[in-house]
Structures are given as structure tokens and as C-alpha cells.
Amino acid sequence: MEFPVDVALAQLVPVLPAGPDWWYEVKLDGHRTIMWRTGDSVRLQARSGRDVTSAWMDIALAGMELPPGVVLDGEAVVVVDGRISFEAAQSRAASGPARARKLAEVHPALYIVWDALAVSSGDLRGRPYTERRQVLLDVLGELPPATPIQAVSATDDREVAQVWYATLRGTGVEGVVAKLGRSAYRAGRSSSWRKVRHAETVDVDVVGYTGQAAHPHALAVRMPEGRVVLSQRLGARLAVRAAAWAGASPASGRARTDAGEAYSAVASGLVAEVLAGTTRHAVVTIKRFR
């Protein structure tokens, strides 16, 4: 496997699927992170493929306890006052190395893992979920007791998953992911992985912006069905985060949305969560970035 890896994604569905081969995992509200244990270090990768090791150095250091060759997929989360805080994770992800270290001293991160993509003997992505899950548990079982690297809760009992969905919302759990036990790990969205969220939102890829890179007015986003549309005008908090992304991602030229609006196109990835009720219209409302 070569860095970065294309990640597997779940389809958003209204209800959990039922059947004898489905497994269910708690969906935590954090930052998607791939952990690579190389021969002499650990690298962390965001969903977009960007190297984010410096922002999550505390869990990278914990990853040094893993055997070389292990590649894991999971979520970097931060717990504040007993609750998983996406805002705290977002702040950490947007920080430089010095500030990230200070934030980690106050609120250390956890790395909640749901998949093993590789071990020292080779690539596991083509093997069934149930086999990869057992390998994951075996690998994590060798870590020290106080490690921040933990396996996500999983069950093959749909009733248990429904209880998780109904009762854990206030703790920073944003839903449940269902995976077929026989499914391989495939890049992109697959019907073999499905997720049910509490919030009515959709993940979209940001492909550009209007205005200046230092002061973007709105973002161009590609909807799940392929349409490119502009977001509503960004508020101050979102504009700051978007400016940091745009400044680190030089525009590749000018492009137009499906409706003909011009924007500065950017190749590198940023994922935004938008309100699902706005996606039927020409302009979407961005809730936050992932």
C-alpha cells in the first residue's frame, strides 16, 4: 500500500438495514484518520489524503506501539467534559504544530479504530469485514492497557444498534454505521456500508470558492449526484476555516457551476457537511467542515 490510501465511505440511509450478515458500529463525531505504522515512524492521513500527523501527534506517538506495517482506519476524537466534541477536534485539526501540542495537553485525543487495512504480512482490504475486524482486535489487544487507540464498539444485533442510536446522541455519537460481514474494503461509497445519522446532513466535496483566497465569500461544492453548486455566503467562523484551506490549496483556474456561476477551482480535497434540506436548491447551507 502507498500513502495516501483512498478511503471507503458509507451511503447515507434513513434506517438501519436488517439481515443476518449485517454488523453495526457506533458512528463518532470526530475526524476521519488513517494511521500508518511505517518501519520507523507513524504517519496520519486525513480523508482527503493530506498528512495530518502534526495535528494529532499524541495519537501518532501511541501508534509507535503498533507493529511496523500496520495500517488502521478510524476516527480521531476529543472528549471535553465527558462528551465527544467535534468542535474540539476541528480546532485541533486546524491548528499548527505548536498550538496542537498545547491543545493536546488539555484534552488528549483518542483514536477509535474500525478497520485494519494492512498488517506486516500484507494488504487486508480484499478480505471480509469480519476477518478484518478479528485482525483489528488481535492487533489492538497487544497494545498497553492505557493506550488511546481503541476499537470501536460493534455488534451483529440490530436491536442493540438501535439502542445505541436512540440513547447515545448526547454523548457525541452522531449515528450508527452498518457493514456487511462479507464486504471488502473498497474505496469510495458502497452499498455494503450504510450510515444513519441523527442530523439531516450530507457530506460533499469542496471544489472551489468565490472571492479571494484570503477572504472566500462562498464555496463551490460537488453534490453526491455530481452537480456543482455554490454554498450560501459563509459566516465568519466558516470563512476563517475556508481561508486556511484555500490559502494552502492554490487555485488551478476558473470554472463554472452547473448554473453557470464562476468560481476559482481547487484540486485538493476538503469535505463539508451541508444541511440535507438545502441540497434540492441551487444554493446549499454549510454546517461545518470535516
Rank of each mutant, 00 (worst) to 15 (best):
M35E: 10
G175D: 13
W22C: 09
H198F: 10
E225D: 11
R241S: 14
T257I: 10
A255L: 05
A62M: 05
G30R: 01
A251K: 07
L238R: 12
E200P: 02
P216W: 10
L66S: 08
A76N: 03
G226V: 01
V5A: 10
A248K: 10
S54E: 13
V176H: 13
A98T: 08
A244F: 01
E159Q: 12
A272W: 09
R50W: 01
L219N: 12
S252Q: 13
A265E: 15
T147F: 01
M57G: 04
A46Y: 01
V71A: 08
W23Y: 14
T210A: 09
W164H: 12
A248C: 04
P128G: 05
D51S: 00
Q162P: 03
P128K: 02
T167S: 15
Q134W: 05
R99Q: 14
R256L: 12
A18E: 15
A10Y: 06
G269M: 10
S41D: 13
A154F: 10
A246D: 09
P250N: 11
S48C: 00
D138I: 00
E142D: 05
L66K: 02
V13P: 07
R125W: 02
K179I: 14
K102C: 03
R133M: 10
E159P: 01
S191W: 08
L136V: 02
R233T: 08
S121P: 06
A187G: 09
W164C: 09
P128T: 02
A89G: 15
G253D: 14
D205Q: 14
F3I: 06
V42L: 02
S252R: 15
V221W: 13
R233C: 00
A109V: 08
P216Y: 06
V176D: 11
D205L: 15
G226E: 05
G277R: 08
R227Q: 11
S249P: 01
A151C: 03
T278D: 11
R83V: 14
G49Q: 01
L110G: 04
L61M: 02
R290F: 07
V26Q: 15
E273D: 11
D205N: 11
G260W: 15
S85G: 06
Y209H: 14
Q150L: 07
R99P: 05
R290S: 13
V204N: 08
A184C: 01
S85D: 07
L9T: 08
T210L: 06
A94Q: 12
V139N: 04
W23H: 15
A267D: 15
L28Y: 15
S54W: 03
D73G: 01
V152I: 10
P67K: 08
R194G: 03
V79Q: 08
Y263Q: 13
R222K: 14
A262L: 11
V135R: 14
R197Q: 13
G175W: 09
R47V: 00
P67G: 04
S190P: 04
L180W: 09
Y209C: 05
A89Y: 04
L72E: 13
G208C: 05
R127D: 09
V160M: 15
I286Q: 07
V240K: 12
Q134S: 14
A276P: 06
V70I: 08
V7A: 12
R254I: 06
T279K: 05
R290L: 15
A276M: 04
